[in-house]
Design a protein around this nucleic acid. Structure first.
Lengths: 115, 115
DNA sequence: GACAGCTACATTGCATAACAATATACTATG
DNA sequence: CATAGTATATTGTTATGCAATGTAGCTGTC
């Protein structure tokens, strides 16, 4: 049942969407990278690996969307907590609006109630 | 109000989604490239240009998702009509399922009824 | 009959993100 | 002391969106 076309398409579909998912997960709370991997891993369609989430978080920091705080842990290595900045909250709001537009567009082309 | 981050993100968000949009537009009917550009252009979030749609359609043909028929037109150049194959319909069904999963995942992280 | 404007197809080159693979290092348990 | 889980990070490959560019046919108008 494998399809190189489908697998490749899935990878492309996730572009941008995972950034939205990570930012949305950070809304209203402080999380560290590994925690985000575990949380999104429980949501079908948003499963993400370390090799994907750390570059995203680095980008957010570089773009000024988040601030970080290093906190020691007594059950493993230190954790780097990420928190949305004012600008991060603003960008998230714009992204959510763009997302709704795309989502509704696809839904209009592809209604649920048919074969 | 411009944001290089946001503009770039929007481009990434469209990856994969536009392929889904084009395939969905072809479901149950035969369309030619330029027509697809015009139709999707009317849907906010799915606006697409020729330089994007023709490579997508070429890929679909190469992957065996569509067949093409060249038809002369008396109001311009000949039109190349695209039609889904059986395999195209199957891949579209898989893509729609993956799309629903991603869409619902984001919606669960990012409910409508809040600020 | 020359020009603008629309229709219609197509390619090239660049920027960017997903992710497998890989590396490092701390803690706990058997 | 080896294994497993926690936790962060980078490198290299690959594929897509799209601006820019090009070709060409048809229609109307001055």
């Amino acid at each position: 049942m494998e399809s190189a076309f489908f697998d490749n398409w899935t990878t492309q579909l996730r572009k941008g969407i995972l950034e939205l998912g990570v930012l949305a997960a950070l809304r209203g709370r402080r999380l560290y990278g590994y925690d985000i991997v575990k949380r999104l891993g429980e949501i079908p369609g948003l499963v993400i690996s370390e090799g994907t989430v750390y570059p995203i978080l680095s980008r957010f920091k570089r773009e000024g969307l988040v601030t970080t705080t290093l906190v020691e842990s007594n059950e493993g290595p230190a954790r780097k907590y990420y928190e949305l900045t004012l600008n991060g909250r603003k960008e998230l709001a714009r992204m959510r609006a763009a997302w709704r537009s795309v989502r509704d567009g696809i839904n209009s082309l592809s209604p649920e109630d048919d074969a």
